[in-house]
Computed example of a mutant assay.
Amino acid sequence: MSDAAVCAGAEEVLERYAATVFAAAYAMVKNKEDAEDIAQEVFISYVKAKPAFESAEHEKAWLLRVTINRCKSFFRSAWQRKTTGLEDDFPDTPFTPDETAVVEAVNRLPKKYRQVIYLYYIEGYATGEIAAILEMPQNTVLSQLARARKLLKTALKGEFDDV
């Protein structure tokens, strides 16, 4: 495959999955700039690896797996361990007050719960697919989803009693 064809294919992949990769990274690192950096690294990895995929779903799963791995590396880095970031919100995100409460509650979850919540509810993956992406047993995914739901229920208790 020529370099021009690789670049054209990479541009198409970037257009198709940029928002998904960024959202996954942001869900993990909770900082817009760090999420942008991670997304950029993911697409650079894509161009360097020139992977072949069985389907669009396989390609998306690969990109999410690389995104999650980059986020894990981000948290292991010496820089991240020795610095404290500023709180970062999406000021332009048009959430209703109820949605904002849910987003904030999800963002307060430990990262292992945020990632399964994101993959299950936002990306629409089944628990078996999440297990494959995160390279963990399906029962672990099920346990983490149950614990995350319980934590969210506790965090949101009383906020929607009038609904």
Rank of each mutant, 00 (worst) to 15 (best):
M1L: 07
D3W: 10
V6C: 08
C7R: 15
A8D: 08
E11H: 11
E12K: 04
V13N: 08
V13C: 14
L14K: 02
E15H: 05
R16K: 09
A19I: 05
T20M: 05
T20Q: 01
V21K: 01
A23K: 02
A24I: 02
A27C: 07
M28S: 04
V29H: 00
E33W: 04
D34I: 00
E36I: 00
D37C: 04
I38C: 03
A39K: 10
Y46D: 09
V47Y: 09
V47I: 14
E54H: 03
A56R: 09
E57A: 13
H58N: 13
R65Y: 05
V66C: 03
R70G: 00
R70Q: 09
F75H: 11
F75R: 11
A78S: 13
Q80I: 11
K82L: 15
T83R: 14
E87S: 12
D88N: 11
D89G: 06
P91A: 06
P91I: 07
D92G: 14
T96E: 06
T96L: 02
D98G: 04
E99Y: 00
A105R: 00
L109A: 04
K112G: 09
R114G: 12
Q115F: 12
V116F: 07
V116D: 00
I117C: 12
Y118A: 07
Y120W: 10
Y121T: 08
I122F: 11
I130L: 08
I130T: 05
A131L: 10
A132P: 03
P137Q: 12
Q138M: 13
Q144P: 08
A146C: 13
L151A: 13
L156K: 03
G158N: 10
E159R: 15
E159T: 11
